[in-house]
Design a protein around this nucleic acid. Structure first.
Lengths: 154, 154
DNA sequence: CTCATATTGACAGCTAGCTGTCAATATGAC
DNA sequence: GTCATATTGACAGCTAGCTGTCAATATGAG
């Protein structure tokens, strides 16, 4: 029946909300000692994983956030000397964002903290289950994004 | 190997962040026409699903949020006449929160909107996959909550 | 009964999402 | 080359999480 699938989806949605909150709280606690927050850590990571220096819009797209919210975080990171704006040969206003040595070092520190955290968290859960869960979430997200672009309604 | 499980977990975590954002955006769009937001809808739902009138702390626990953030939403809902505070026979300050007729009607409207949304979103995804995904997320959340209570580190 | 402790709500203030509007710059059609 | 359109950043302001502190009330040990 269809109602059962619907209620399973509702369960999943509520679980996504709760886990999202717990991960952010746990991440904040994990990197607080090195002066980071989950949000800044994520942006630092998104910058680090770009092929090269990238404009804010590209980083926001990679993270699935709006350019304005990423811009705010990026500005804060720049004030702390973790990233720098470099001139963009193709666009005068859209400066490129790159990690400083300090930013890169801090990001690597965060990764070192994350390693045992992730290992313990995933302990005993088989890779296939993790992958399968990711795939379900990705599929749902793709549908929501597709719906968003057209006339809403997934 | 262990690094593979760790990277699967990282994928899953990033997917949780992205999907969480998409669901909230989609939910906001869905219930905007009846004057609700995702957050208020959720609180309304949590109140509706309690066995009877409940204090704010109980609702917050059910949602996995802090009492203060739920309190703020509850106060806003009370101002709009969607919920009322009733005296608590066991506690003078901790008033009980209950839906008004208007609040109940609005919640039922939201559920009617959600039904086709959920059906379309879950279409073609088998119940087992949804359930399995929920179980993985629940397990991860339980570990994080357990870690939070003791000396951190999941 | 009394007093230390826990629970709860009120209030203030922070972070990090979001939207909307405007100006500057690129881009593409012609 | 010019001009309409799209992209980008800046700025302002909103929502909804969070923490911290204080006062009021319950609760339990003695």
């Amino acid at each position: 029946m269809n109602g059962s699938r619907r209620s399973e989806l509702t369960d999943l949605v509520l679980e996504v909300f709760r886990l999202n909150g717990r991960i952010i709280a746990s991440g904040d606690a994990l990197v607080a000692r090195i002066g980071l927050t989950s949000a800044r850590w994520q942006v630092l990571g998104a910058v680090a994983l770009q092929a090269g220096p990238a404009p804010v819009v590209r980083i926001a797209d990679a993270m699935g956030l709006t350019r304005q919210s990423v811009q705010r975080t990026v500005d804060a990171l720049a004030e702390e000397g973790l990233i720098v704006f470099r001139p963009n040969p193709h666009h005068q206003r859209a400066k490129l964002v790159a990690l400083t040595a300090k930013g890169n070092a801090l990001y690597r520190s965060a990764m070192r903290l994350q390693k045992p955290w992730a290992t313990r968290l995933a302990a005993g859960i088989d890779t296939g289950s993790l992958q399968a869960a990711s795939n379900v979430l990705r599929k749902l997200r793709a549908r929501l994004e597709r719906a968003e672009k057209s006339g809403d309604q997934p």
